[in-house]
Design a protein around this nucleic acid. Structure first.
Lengths: 333, 333
DNA sequence: TGGCAGGATTGGAACGTTCCAATTACCCTG
DNA sequence: CAGGGTAATTGGAACGTTCCAATCCTGCCA
């Protein structure tokens, strides 16, 4: 039992090969009844479209490569789901690859996308990605866009990090805090600098000193730092992201201090767990799904109009007040 | 500037097209110096291998389709990372698709894999997947295996659910609990029945009555149920998975009862957050990464020997004792 | 009745690999 | 030096689509 080809469908329907091919693509040049006849013949024979042949001839794969820096991070997982959904709606399949923050793996996957080939690449750069990589992508002439973590130029979609930490910081200032520290953001990338900036500028505007507690995004590392915080330390922590904030609340609890009452804590991202944390986390919502959709839009635009200037979608974040900032309690002061 | 083909590389190296093709595949029939010469010529011209052409001719895509039921679930995300890693090592790329628990989307993606085509399919069935789907896959003659959620027959890799809840239940029995309820497992699938079975049998063996508190895997739903638990209720909860357990601890806290001290709680999966939860969760470790690797093995075996009986890898789980079961406290009784 | 416009259909040449059979080059043996 | 065997290379036909130009209708008008 051989595989069924367009040729076979054509014979079955009593038309030429090219006619059958057109009919299967539902081309309007063909009479509706011809299209229907071919379609039925295909159904009868159990015809399965062969993308590899089509791709080879047409050069269009209708596939986008998506490079995720860390799939096991809920934020990026959610983002990925958003991207996939949006691309699917536009008729594109997603070829997903997880780099696990390895620049080497990222290179290999990119190379693979190039061979595949895909019609476009969406990149969430692994930490430590040399900016030169973007230049290479340009040289390869594959339409591409960066997501969340970005570089100076090129198509991009991501949250407005600066505005996010500004919201958090101003909220804490409004609650009366004066000693506010920034926890996390040890990595050197656009996200770290953006979030630090938003915090630092707000502090400067209020005439207060900024204070940096560097920390990786590991929940355990953050917990250790928070636990060791001396009593005369900051009364509020603006955390780099929710993971760090989770760690911070945990460390405070271990040290016998109640997050929200003794020390205010804010996160960034609003991952699903944030609402269910103990205590529920006050954080900055960036809606990863929405960013994913924006990323898909930006890339599709690039693919359709390669000559147009690249789009940059910087999405405004929102403050979500829950309990870890102590907003409900402070009022009693 | 045209794309560089093997033809061009051959001309540059001064050999025939077929020779160049062989050289690029590093075929041992060719003299080493010929291989090197061609390789260098390819390098000079910036040759990029075209997989679509190769796939079309050879029928081998060196790609495996992976259907994930819910990518935003940390457990499945971790599992996915494991699969991808193992397949990558074996020289296969992963075509990842997220079904978001939609049977419809799952169908579409499967269809797409069929057209692509991929060399094999790894399936984490969406809830509600008709068992007939496996029959279809068989008819399609695409090597496949199920992961975590499985069916009666066919290649499969997943945790030993029965053994897992048995471990948890016996641990709680050992701590002196007599009224132990099972929270979660409302869905009708192999995972639910397996976990329920392990719990129910252990209870029966101890001569105690089993008690089912049905609940979706939503953290909020679990919290609501736990919060509403009357005082004369069970003293211990065996939860369907970690998400449910997270919800349970949260609900208890809201009701002013301390998980571990007032009510013992165990989870299932040991996701990353379990160790960092408040209180740290006693749970059943199934090591999603390891399952992912097993799944890759099982599928590869199926692809290599389609006629051999399908492998089934049921991985033994381990009990991880932390604080939510109150093991550290009970000793004082 | 011939010509013509336009829609509907067709034939055949690509696309860039892999696969197979055929050829050449080279060395060894009798 | 013919014959034969092996290693190295080559030529050309696939693979199943899409694309393009060419052809075939059919009805309409002069």
């Amino acid at each position: 039992m051989q595989r069924v080809r367009i040729k076979d469908v054509a014979r079955e329907a009593g038309v030429a090969l090219s006619t059958a091919a057109l009919a299967l693509r539902d081309d309007s040049r063909l009479r509706p009844e011809t299209r229907r006849a071919v379609r039925e013949a295909a159904e009868r024979l159990g015809y399965v479209y062969d993308r590899s042949a089509a791709l080879m001839r047409s050069g269009k794969s209708h596939t986008v490569g998506l490079l995720v820096c860390e799939l096991t991070n809920p934020f990026y997982a959610e983002l990925t789901a958003g991207v996939e959904e949006a691309l699917d709606e536009a008729g594109y399949a997603t070829m997903l690859a997880n780099t696990s923050e390895s620049v080497l793996r990222q290179r290999r996957m990119l190379e693979r996308f190039r061979e595949q080939p895909v019609d476009g690449v969406l990149l969430m750069p692994a930490t430590g990605t040399p900016p030169a990589l973007i230049g290479e992508l340009q040289a390869w002439r594959v339409p591409h866009a960066t997501v969340v973590r970005g570089f100076r130029a090129g198509a991009h979609a991501g949250p407005d990090n600066r505005a996010g930490t500004r919201l958090a910081t101003e909220h804490l200032l409004g609650l009366g805090h004066r000693r506010i520290a920034f926890l996390g953001g040890a990595a050197r990338n656009s996200v770290s600098t953006g979030r630090w900036d938003g915090y630092a500028r707000s502090m400067a505007r209020a005439g207060l000193a900024a204070e940096h507690l560097p920390c990786s995004t590991d929940i355990g590392a953050a917990a250790a730092i928070a636990q060791a915080l001396p009593p005369e330390s900051p009364t509020a922590l603006v955390c780099f992201n929710d993971s760090v904030a989770f760690g911070a609340t945990l460390g405070l609890l271990r040290a016998g201090r109640m997050p929200g009452r003794d020390v205010a804590v804010t996160g960034f991202d609003d991952v699903r767990e944030a609402a269910h944390w103990y205590p529920p986390l006050t954080t900055i919502r960036v809606a990863p799904r929405v960013i994913g959709q924006a990323a898909a839009r930006v890339l599709l635009h690039r693919m359709e109009q390669p000559e147009a200037p690249p789009l940059r979608e910087i999405l405004p974040p929102a403050l979500v007040v829950r309990e870890s900032c102590g907003a409900g309690l402070r009022r009693a002061d």
